[in-house]
Each structure stands twice: as C-alpha cells, then as structure tokens.
C-alpha cells in the first residue's frame, strides 16, 4: 500500500510548469499541480492536467518500429538509427541537403536544440531548422 506524488516537469510545451504525478502502488493515477513551484504556481493547462495518461498507456510504443512492405515490425534502436542515417544520407546525395528539414522542440534543453541545429547545418548542410511551437 503506497500513495505518493512525484514532482516532475510537464512533458509538453516549453513553459516548464512543474506537476505532481500521483502514484498508487507504482501506478500513475493522476496529476496534481505543484502549488509551491515558481513557474506554474499551482496552475496547469489541459495538457498538464492530463500528462499522466500516456505514461503507462497500452498503446505506447516501447521499441522503434520499421515499416516493411506496408507493415510495421519491431526493431532495435541500433537498426532504426542506422536506417534513418542511411536514408538521410541518400536523400542528401540524391536531392541535395535542402531536401531535408529538421524540427526541434520547445521542450528540449538549449543544449539539445543547439546540437540539433548544429547537426542540421554542419552534418546535413541545411538551414531548414524549425521548432514545434510553430507547428
């Protein structure tokens, strides 16, 4: 028998509101706002209030999936990343680097977004970098 709250940051937008995940016997059952946190100050939007619902959802993907002959099959991260790298490489050599666009995230850290734009510009060679807040 166990009930506790774990404070974390909302996984959705870039505001960074804190929220509490209500956990009963290891199962996430709900969300409470973080009333003593300086960002949200006890408020959440509808996404934050429902941030618990996907975590243990049965439809959640647990491994990468690769589509072959129209069907998805489970794959390892190594295989999936290699496939992505191969495809990006072949698109670049066939159609040029500007055939590739990169979408970053408002939810990533500055450092992660810096790396992503660096990857786009220096490795792929395109300035086509945008972010989820404009999607």
């Amino acid at each position: 028998m166990d009930y506790s709250n774990t404070q974390t940051i909302c996984p959705f937008c870039g505001c960074g509101c804190a929220l509490n995940l209500e956990v009963v016997d290891g199962e996430i059952v709900g969300v409470l706002p973080a009333n003593d946190h300086p960002v949200g100050r006890g408020s959440l939007c509808i996404k934050g209030w429902n941030a618990h619902s996907f975590v243990q959802h049965e439809d959640r993907l647990k491994t990468p999936l690769i589509r072959e002959d129209g069907d998805l099959r489970e794959a390892s991260w190594e295989e999936a990343l290699e496939l992505v790298a191969d495809k990006l490489g072949s698109i670049k050599s066939e159609h040029g680097p500007d055939a590739v666009g990169v979408l970053a995230s408002a939810k990533c850290t500055n450092e992660e977004n810096y790396l992503l734009q660096k990857f786009s510009r220096a490795v792929i060679g395109t300035n086509n970098v945008d972010h989820c807040a404009r999607l």
């Binding site: 028998m1 166990d2 009930y3 709250n5 774990t6 404070q7 409470l32 973080a34 946190h37």
Partner: peptide
C-alpha cells in the same frame, strides 16, 4: 492506522502523500 494523508515536503517540492 494504515496510513495518514498529509503534505510531505522534500527537495522535490510539497504534495500530498500517505505517511505510514
């Protein structure tokens, strides 16, 4: 009792918990 519901303050912040 099997537990008491009250607020617990940790370095993570303050929220309800079941004290046992």
């Amino acid at each position: 009792l099997d537990g008491v519901v009250a607020l617990r303050k940790t370095d993570q912040g303050t929220a309800p918990t079941l004290f046992q």
